[in-house]
């Protein structure tokens, strides 16, 4: 008999989430979303212009190659698993 455990488990999560959502709704947390976008910048000092170094640009290319290789690998493997699995 294991249903009680899962119902309790999911129930607690759901109850907490709903209660918090209700609070957020009444507290105006979903209003003023434009201002919310700027919150991380609040204590930002004057912007410093940063020029990407030459090394930095090479790093971007290297990352791009890695990302493409990763995507290709994932696609290849998926096709392999679906056709041969």
């Amino acid at each position: 008999m294991y249903y009680p455990y899962f119902i309790t488990y999911m129930g607690i999560g759901l109850a907490i989430s709903l209660a918090v959502f209700y609070w957020a709704l009444n507290n105006g947390q979903f209003k003023d979303q434009q201002r919310a976008r700027f919150l991380p910048l609040a204590d930002e000092t004057a912007p410093i212009r940063i020029r990407a170094s030459r090394l930095g640009r090479y790093e971007i290319y290297a990352l791009f190659v890695l990302a493409v290789a990763g995507l290709a690998l994932s696609a290849g493997v998926l096709i392999f698993a679906l056709t041969r699995g």
Partner: peptide, 28 residues
């Protein structure tokens, strides 16, 4: 990321949508 880029977050509403959907979906 917003701080490093010195740019506001693209969309706070979208971020909250992501947050609540993660809470609802990831739990089971």
């Amino acid at each position: 990321i917003p701080r490093a880029c010195r740019a506001p977050l693209y969309s706070h509403t979208l971020s909250l949508l992501g947050f609540w959907s993660l809470i609802v979906i990831y739990t089971h």
